[in-house]
Design a protein around this nucleic acid. Structure first.
Length: 313
RNA sequence: GGGAGUGUUCCCGAGUGGCCAAAGGGGGCAGACUGUAAAUCUGUUGUCAGUGACUUCGAUGGUCCGAAUCCAUCCGCUCCCA
């Protein structure tokens, strides 16, 4: 009865073991990996983004990893276009597409088939909006939004200027209200038959401990060099300069903080990020969670995957 | 040994007699999220019953109707002179 394309999704907070599990499953079930990650797409940013290693990437084909220059922009729409193409390509080969990542917006948008408003970048409008924000403040911009789209305004906090500005931007650019867009963007049916596997720790402190450990590891494996590279190009690296892992070292390069202080900042930022990721994934009701403290999780995840592939789910 | 400080809730830090369970920040916890999302933002954070009570501002004792705030002693830390 299900003739939709099957995709396996592996999600979870940073440092929860997504990469390891995805490679194991890919090898076992003849799969290829598609990264749902907004930062691993960039070349030369390897350590800080916790990309799969060269060896891992050679063991299993990876898509949407390491294919953009750091100065190139990336966003949900690009991700969806590329991911769709990759899924089709992998499926055509008779292989299993495995979407792996921690960017909640990307994953949810793809599996729900969200249709974003197509529009060309319009720098002038963005700049104009930023100027207005600087000049008149959050409050004023929010009032503008209230005028053009009171319904959407109710769901956004006035301080969340990124969301407020975006909604105004869409309106100025296309004449469409965000509230309409929200309704129209969601198709009746999901485009794929997806199985969602979520990775997490029973004990939050273990997750945080693992994050700290991983940052320490990165410190000895080149994150500082990468950070310096990003620092020197920060004005050109629009998306990538906002990655956690690099901007935390900027104070060090400016001579304002020690390396140790920056590393602590990075750990903290990563922990906070992991929590935000979990908030996102916890809202998605159809995730099959696996707690990684239980050693058998890989085996159980494989069993579930097998059922999914063979249609016994 | 003499002198000057200082000790606040998980942390930093404001508070110098009542409006103080105590500003602000951090952290924790929870949440939001439709094209920069590793971004951006929100709520909450002594305890217990929930418009009230109780315990808390190094310790002990005191002054006062009333103290984190004043006094005494003690303990800890910092700095200066020796």
């Amino acid at each position: 009865m299900e003739d939709k394309t099957k995709i396996l999704v592996i999600c979870g907070p940073t440092a929860s073991g997504k990469t390891g599990l995805s490679i194991e499953i890919a090898q076992k079930f003849n799969g290829e990996i598609i990264s749902a990650d907004s930062m691993q797409v960039y070349k030369n940013l390897n350590i800080g983004t916790a990309k799969a290693t060269k060896a891992e990437q050679e063991a299993v084909p990876h898509h949407l990893v390491d294919f953009l220059q750091p100065e190139q922009p990336y966003n949900v729409q690009i991700f969806i276009d590329c991911a769709k193409a990759a899924i089709a390509e992998i499926t055509a080969k008779g292989k299993l597409p495995i979407l792996v990542g921690g960017t909640g917006l990307y994953i949810e948008s793809l599996i729900n088939g969200i249709i974003f408003t197509y529009q060309d970048e319009n720098k002038q409008i963005k700049e104009q909006l930023n100027k207005e924000l600087q000049e008149y403040g959050n409050e004023h911009m929010y009032e503008l939004l209230c005028e053009i789209d009171p319904q959407y305004a109710k769901t956004v906090h006035k301080n969340n200027y990124v969301r407020v500005l975006r909604a105004i931007e869409i309106y100025r650019l296309t004449g469409k209200r965000m509230s309409e867009q929200l309704v129209n963007s969601r198709p009746q049916e999901k485009p794929y038959n997806s199985l969602l596997i979520g990775l997490n720790y029973t004990d939050r402190q273990s997750l945080y401990g693992n994050i700290n450990f991983r940052v320490d590891y990165m410190m000895y494996h080149g994150i500082i060099e990468e950070a310096e590279y990003v620092y020197k190009n920060k004005d050109a690296f629009i998306t990538s300069a906002s990655a956690i892992g690099y901007k935390e070292f900027f104070p060090y390069f400016k001579g304002e903080n020690t390396l140790e202080e920056c590393a602590e900042k990075l750990k903290q930022a990563s922990r906070n990020y992991a929590k935000r990721q979990l908030t996102w994934f916890n809202r998605m009701s159809d995730i099959n969670w696996f707690m990684i403290e239980d050693e058998s999780y890989k085996q159980r995840a494989c069993e579930l995957t097998k059922k999914f592939i063979t249609g016994n789910l």
